[in-house]
């Protein structure tokens, strides 16, 4: 399926309903993306005011999840979608859950940013977390693009990238343990940074989930918990 096929139903209203809920999901994605970017910036720059904004945005994100889920239930009940329409609605319901969780993680980073802004900054700033954060931001952006344009190639690439993110997070966690052993007075700060890195890594996991829904949506294939190489070979054969 491609994005055009959304508008080819005999029923005009049905076209509009599917299009509307899809664009609601994409705006929710935009809001969450912004929330993540601001959370990282607040943390790296020690900007507690920006961090507050991030925390407050979460209410809006939660509200959007509810609206999208209600709209999807309504479509399921009234239209009884089948085939690609059904997969679209299911993918949207699942994606809205992941976006909401991403928002929660961004909110956590916001709280940590407030806490860290009240402590001394490390000499190197938050370089490692910033790097990890940049990578996660790029991943989220591509995942949302893949969802908007139904790009399976992009989705497959992002799913693979998630492994790198996990590895980078582990490196940061190990480094944090070293710091704590070296300098027990900084335990609080190091722990805060470690939690922030953990949240970023989680956001990456959710972005990966979004990409899995893209593949499900386009090909009707569930690539979760499976061998990605085998799935990819199969998709290429089609």
């Amino acid at each position: 399926m491609d994005t055009r096929s959304l508008s080819q139903h005999i029923s005009h209203e049905y076209n509009q309903e599917l299009e509307a809920v899809r664009s609601q999901l994409l705006s929710m994605g935009g809001l969450v993306e912004q929330q993540i970017n601001q959370a990282l910036q607040a943390l790296v720059e020690g900007d507690s005011q920006l961090a507050e904004t991030v925390v407050q945005t979460d209410d809006r994100v939660n509200q959007m999840e509810i609206t999208i889920d209600e709209e999807c239930s309504r479509i399921l009940a009234r239209r009884q979608p089948a085939a690609s329409d059904l997969r679209l609605v299911i993918a949207i319901i699942k994606a809205s859950t992941d976006l909401e969780r991403m928002g929660d993680e961004a909110q956590k980073i916001g709280h940590l940013a407030v806490s860290l802004a009240g402590q001394d900054r490390p000499s190197g700033g938050y370089r490692e977390i910033d790097q990890l954060g940049q990578a996660v931001q790029a991943m989220v952006r591509s995942a949302l693009d893949a969802f908007a344009r139904l790009e399976v190639d992009t989705a497959l690439r992002i799913i693979r990238e998630d492994k790198l993110i996990n590895r980078e997070y582990e490196a940061i966690a190990r480094q944090c343990i070293d710091y704590m052993m070296e300098d027990p007075h900084r335990v609080r700060r190091v722990l805060d940074s470690m939690w922030a890195a953990r949240s970023l890594e989680r956001i990456g996991d959710h972005a990966k989930n979004l990409c899995e829904y893209v593949i499900y949506l386009v090909h009707g294939k569930d690539v979760r918990h499976g061998n990605l190489d085998a799935a990819e070979r199969e998709l290429l054969q089609q």
């Binding site: 399926m1 096929s5 080819q8 139903h9 005999i10 029923s11 049905y14 979608p81 089948a82 085939a83 690609s84 329409d85 059904l86 997969r87 090909h219 009707g220």
Partner: peptide, 15 residues
Amino acid sequence: TTPRQKKTEDYITGR
């Protein structure tokens, strides 16, 4: 859920 033919898809989804 995943018909193979586009004609089938169009028919069952009302396109």
